[in-house]
Design a protein around this nucleic acid. Structure first.
Length: 616
RNA sequence: GCCCCCGUAGCUCAGCUGGAUAGAGCACCGGACUUCUAAUCCGACGGUCACAGGUUCGAGUCCUGUCGGGGGCGCCA
């Protein structure tokens, strides 16, 4: 993809004009690579072609810049071309461009800022995120993946891709039996060991199951049910040892640093495994529903809740996948087990698909899942926490073994979330039920604050989530700065309506009157959204959009301070806004500018899934 | 031991894939509301971009190494 996507029609013109100038000047063709100068007074766009051509041509870059400018057929929208510094070619757009922009924003409405990637790059992207185990409620750290995955999905949609938001429900295997056992013990007053799941949510789910299925569920095997939980029949319950993080989807996946590894849940079999399994399956579904509700409260809605048990184990998809891998010649038997030749694709050792006792590994389920997704999408995006970093190589290799082109699988690792309270780390233990739940925090501080807090920072940096800070300083949270700008505009519009202000149609407004520095800054900022959206989507970087929203809000606040829209009530010639009283056409132009700015703010916030309030 | 991420203002972080004078919020100091929302604006203060080399017209950005912080590495759920 070109470094600067030619989103704006003007950009395409400039790009073509510079290319033509290069040819006309007898210079080698190269990407004009238009960029926005950091300093506003350098112009609206700049190209560094002269700097980059200087070395191969062995010529002075300023000289080359002059050559380019001499041969440049200046497009109509460009008002001024200048050479600056070591050889930058700066372009300043004519005011008419900004006038057109206001009309364009108002015409496009909610679509302004959206764009279409070239046909060849258009994809159906399966975005898998969160996918935390349904053996407990989501903790705060999961909010990072929920917010980020959802916003990335929105960004991909806004750039012309089709998206499936997907949550993998790890509802098979030993941990489900243990989860069921925990529920049984809670329901029957049995004694929980250290290995069992506990906590308020477990108690509530146990009560819920009793209410819907009756107490007998906890004491007898439902008729006609076997203890098939996937991962092979749990024949003795203690065939597996330990917890830990052997597979991608078996781990916590919630993305929060945690002091207790899931480990050593082993050897606990105090309940009939068939009962534990039956209860576990139902309990997991109840817990999953709680998770779904909690995410919905945060504005995150998944298209697909993919049940490992129902769609991989019960359908035989895992077995089919192992067959396919064997048929492809990428799997082999050794020591009674089936291995996948992941070392052919960069992994440091081959991985076991089927243990020597015949049971498939979690990795086998992950392969089957990948295969299933690939049949439904043409690009697979995994958003994982840093605790799964060690899994990337084998997952990439698995994709290659299944014939998925490497450029269609993107595994993104995000750093974890540190939960703090007044600067002190909060130690959490999932099995002891000592967690801080996402839905509680969302309820307390609001979805907007939680989402924005996570979206504002890049995936590569560890985020501190200090409950005290987020709650107490909420009035200083940058999200309010952005939302306030939107609410302020809404307020002006309300006032205008009340006063019977006649704004007229944009088409009739004289937007050429918008020449105040604060007006020009706002117009320039508004023009930036499409490019920011395209880049944020391309780089999978939500913070780009968040920072842009803050910048745009800032330019509006300055405009608001310096440029009145409504004439002052008094006739005082020195009062702020007297210029509007003297020239009503200016007030009308500013009104349309503000309405357009409101739209741009709303569009940016919409992509972050943060609300744009009408009043605050 | 090996792999990944981070180190930028007192604090929390951006920095547009190598460009012009490194930015914002918070904190601190000083200003601005009888007139569209002060959850705002204006100004001041604040930097050896962890450190050392290298690549080139140009490095916070790319490469190598060192130091410091975080995370990950199993026929294992």
């Amino acid at each position: 993809m070109a470094r600067t996507p030619l989103i704006d029609p003007v950009l395409a013109d400039l790009d073509a004009a510079i290319r033509a100038a290069l040819t006309a000047a007898g210079l080698p063709e190269t990407d004009p690579d238009l960029e926005k100068p950091k300093q506003a007074d350098h112009g609206d766009w700049a190209t560094t072609v002269a700097l980059r051509l200087a070395k191969p041509a062995r010529r002075n870059p300023r000289e080359l810049a002059q050559l380019v400018v001499d041969h440049l057929e200046v497009p109509e929208v460009v008002e001024e071309v200048s050479i600056a510094g070591p050889g930058f070619v700066n372009l300043r757009l004519a005011h008419r461009y900004h006038e057109d922009l206001v009309r364009r924003v108002l015409t496009e409405g909610g679509r302004y800022g959206h764009s279409q990637v070239p046909e060849a790059e258009r994809r159906h992207v399966n975005v898998e995120f969160v996918s935390a185990n349904p053996t407990g409620p989501l903790h705060v750290g999961a909010g990072r993946w929920a917010a980020t995955g959802d916003a990335l999905a929105a960004l991909l949609e806004a750039t012309g891709h089709a998206v499936t938001r997907e949550y993998y429900v790890n509802d098979a295997g030993e941990q489900i039996r243990l989860f069921g056992e925990s529920l049984v013990l809670v329901a029957t007053g049995g004694e929980l060991t250290e290995a069992h799941y506990r906590g308020q949510a477990i108690v509530e789910v146990a009560e819920q199951l009793r209410a819907t299925h009756g107490a007998a569920l906890f004491t007898s095997v439902p008729a006609g049910e076997e203890a098939e939980l996937g991962g092979g029949t749990i024949a003795h319950g203690n065939a597996d040892t330990g917890g830990g993080h052997g597979g991608l989807h078996g781990g916590l996946h919630g993305g929060l640093t945690e002091d207790v590894a899931a480990g050593d849940r082993a050897e606990v079999t105090v309940v009939d495994p068939r009962i534990a399994a039956a209860v576990g399956v139902r309990g997991v579904e109840a817990m999953r529903q709680r998770i779904e509700d909690g995410l919905h409260a945060m504005g995150v809605d998944f298209d697909v809740w993919f049940s490992e048990r129902a769609r991989l184990h019960e359908t035989g998809a895992i077995a089919a996948t192992l067959d396919e891998l064997t048929a492809r010649g990428v799997a082999y038997e050794a020591e009674g087990a089936l291995f996948l030749r992941t070392t052919d694709h960069g992994d440091d050792k081959d991985r076991v698909l089927r243990r020597s006792d015949g049971r498939p590994t979690y990795f086998a389920a992950d392969c089957a899942y990948l295969r299933d997704k690939w049949s439904r999408a043409d690009e697979l995006y995994y958003l994982l926490g840093a605790d799964h970093h060690g899994y990337v190589d084998r997952l990439t290799a698995a994709a290659a073994c299944l014939g998925v082109p490497p450029d269609r699988v993107e595994i993104r690792i995000g750093q974890l979330v540190n939960l703090l309270r007044d600067g002190q780390p909060v130690r959490m233990s999932k099995r002891a039920g000592e967690t801080i739940d996402l839905d509680e925090v969302v309820e307390e501080v609001g979805s907007d604050v939680v989402r924005y807090h996570f979206l504002r920072q890049g995936l590569d940096s560890t985020i501190d989530f200090d409950l005290a800070v987020v709650a107490a300083q909420s009035m200083e949270n940058p999200v309010y700065y952005v939302q306030y700008a939107h609410a302020r505009i809404a307020s002006v519009i309300r006032n205008a309506d009340e006063r019977g202000f006649e704004a007229g149609e944009v088409a009739d407004a004289d937007l050429s009157l918008l020449t105040h520095p604060a007006e020009l800054a706002l117009l320039t900022a508004m023009a930036g959204l499409p490019l920011v959206v395209a880049e944020a989507a391309d780089l999978r970087a939500t913070q780009r959009l968040a920072r842009y929203a803050e910048e745009l809000a800032g330019t509006f606040h300055r405009f608001y301070t310096e440029c009145r829209i409504l004439a002052p009530a008094s006739g005082d010639a020195d009062a702020p806004g007297a210029e509007v009283a003297a020239d009503p056409a200016l007030g009308r132009a500013r009104y349309h500018l503000a309405v357009a700015a409101k739209q741009v703010l709303a569009n940016a916030l919409a992509l972050l899934r943060v609300s744009a309030p009408e009043r605050m």
